[in-house]
Amino acid sequence: MSENIKPYALITGASKGIGKSIAYELAKKGYPLLLVARSAAELKVLSDDLKVKYGINAFVLSIDLSTNGAALKVIDWIKTNNYPVGILVNNAGYGVWGDFSKSSLNDQLGMMQLNMNVVVELSHLFVPVLSQQKQAYILNISSTAAYQAVPTLAVYSATKAFVLSFTRALRFELAQTSISVTCFSPGPVDTGFAERAGLNAFSKMAEKFNMQPDEVAKMAVKAMFDKKSEVIPGFTNIISVYANRILPKGFVEKMAAGIYKI
């Protein structure tokens, strides 16, 4: 392959929020895209817009990644069409808010499947594919929730802690290869996440601290290409994570419980 031809970037959860903004950011840089999400209609609109604005290829795969075998279908799609992938962005995920014992077990397990298992499955399946490039990247989207236990978001914060730990370990293992691995952990972002998680009251308060998806995506892509290991965007978020490290865990958890209380 010519060095002037960029490899494809595959983005999960690409139809909205941070994933959609990352798609635009990479398209601006001339990367052809593989867009994966549940909504076929939203993916088509996005794909058409990217093609018109930036003249890049943007192919779509509508699939529910939380279903068993979804990751294998993604890699089969890649291999069947011979897409040369050089970037994997594991962005798809969601949160479930509420007391753990009163929340739907199926919802919690589905969240674990998407937030953790799919990240592991796709990373494992794509390492051989990415290894074919002179330089390749894996960008895993975590959250500032990864740095503490969050009552009423107990499983969500635990899944994001998993992503952070997994990413750092994978980065170390792949250090001598052509694949750079980055974990990006934003705080509140104006993506509708709070509403979808059921955090309606919190969403109004979070508006004061929300970062915009385009701003976050730009920082995430830069961190990836700069080969950073772990990045937290925003001064407030950095201070919050630092405070979590030095304050007693019980105190931090009590504060979080007050913020996210039912």
Rank of each mutant, 00 (worst) to 15 (best):
L72Y: 13
A145L: 05
F126E: 02
V120N: 09
V150K: 00
I262H: 10
S66L: 07
T67I: 05
T152P: 03
N91C: 10
A197E: 09
V85L: 10
L65R: 11
K218I: 10
V119M: 12
K44T: 15
S104Q: 13
E253D: 09
V252D: 10
K20N: 05
F251V: 13
I239S: 11
A71E: 06
K44N: 15
D226E: 14
V127E: 09
G95E: 08
G98D: 08
I138P: 04
Y24N: 11
S131W: 11
T191S: 05
L109G: 08
N81I: 15
V231E: 01
S104H: 15
G30T: 03
S2T: 06
L139S: 07
G98K: 15
I56M: 04
N115M: 15
S229A: 09
S165Y: 01
L65A: 05
Q176F: 07
E215S: 06
L26D: 00
I239W: 06
Q108K: 14
K261W: 01
Y54M: 09
S104C: 07
M211D: 15
I262A: 11
M205T: 14
D190N: 05
M219L: 13
L170Y: 02
M1W: 03
V45Q: 01
F225V: 04
N91S: 06
I238L: 04
Y94W: 13
